[in-house]
């Protein structure tokens, strides 16, 4: 009887050891080991909490609860790690799962020890009337093994066939052609200019502002690149943008009048534009008032 507890415990330990990051194994192996560990821990949950459940109607109680308990082991361990300040990471999760498996195995053994076997069955749950009669016929260990094998086949075969059909359908969707999505042209401040957080100070020699222009999915086109200072166009240049290309350009902002006023600096290509604000280096305060009492800017 103890093997029903010790076998899943050993499987859980062995599978969790495979999952240790130091092993650096490929993901298919890790996935298989993880599933095996979770199923083993799920089985331990079932054994520890309810013993061996009787089936009723569709014989899915034991398998369903094992899979569900195994699946819920992961969030349970993650939630238990949270108050301890441990992160949701491989090593704490593996340690937590191993500890949980040990506790569940101990609880399962205690349950076996305290339970009174009925007709060779360790404290089985009687269940609904019809299944009590059905359960009596499966008391031989050989018959039970064959029944377990048939149930396993009934579970694994549809999963395998569904996976086959599903993977083929997904491959078809992913590899087939899709309609062309609309293209776009974007303009963005680039380099240091992408980090502008406050008005920029323009020195007397002017300022080189990096911009990035992206043409994705639009046909090759030529547009005017315009520099505006205070709303007025001060410089223009024609730029040709080829399909699927990203251009890093530099736009020179000329020196601004040293009046301390903020001026919007706009850089545009076609309809797209960027705007930041600048003032001349060493200029007077923008709050200075003129002789009629209005602000100078």
């Amino acid at each position: 009887m103890m093997t029903t507890i010790l076998r899943p415990l050993v499987i859980a330990y062995a599978s969790l050891a495979v999952l240790l990051p130091a092993a650096s194994l490929p993901w298919p192996l890790l996935l298989a080991a993880c599933l095996l560990a979770l199923l083993a821990i799920g089985e331990l949950w079932v054994r520890a909490v309810i013993g061996r459940p009787a089936e009723s109607g569709v014989p899915a109680v034991r398998a369903g609860l094992t899979v569900l308990a195994g699946l819920l082991t992961l969030p349970a361990v993650a939630l238990l790690l949270h108050p301890l300040g441990a992160a949701v990471a491989p090593v704490p999760l593996i340690a937590g799962c191993a500890l949980l498996a040990t506790v569940l195995a101990a609880a399962g053994l205690l349950r076996l020890h305290l339970g009174r076997p009925v007709a060779g069955e360790p404290c089985d749950e009687p269940g609904v009337p019809a299944q009590r009669a059905a359960g009596r016929t499966a008391d031989l260990s050989g018959a039970r093994r064959r029944a377990t094998a048939r149930t396993a086949a009934a579970i694994l075969l549809p999963i395998g066939l569904s996976a086959l059909v599903g993977v083929a359908a997904i491959r078809t969707v992913e590899t087939s052609s899709h309609p062309v999505l609309p293209g776009y042209l974007t303009v963005a401040l680039n380099g240091w200019a992408a980090g502008i957080t406050h008005p920029v100070t323009v020195p007397a020699r002017g300022l080189a502002v990096p911009v990035r222009i992206t043409n994705s999915g639009l046909p090759t086109r030529t547009d005017w690149l315009r520099l505006r200072v205070g709303g007025a166009v001060v410089a223009t240049r024609r730029v040709t943008m080829m399909t699927g290309k990203v251009y890093a350009l530099s736009v020179r902002v000329p020196a601004l009048p040293p009046d301390g006023c903020l001026r919007p600096i706009g850089i545009s290509v076609g309809e797209a534009s960027t705007v930041f604000y600048a003032k001349a280096q060493g200029g007077a305060s923008g709050r200075a008032r003129n002789d009629r009492g209005r602000t100078a800017c």
Partner: peptide
């Protein structure tokens, strides 16, 4: 501060100091 612009979408940075 308008850092990024496309056919429909623009991204501005807040500069509450200004």
């Amino acid at each position: 501060i308008k850092l990024y612009d496309g056919p429909h979408l623009a991204i501005y940075r807040f500069d509450f100091g200004s």
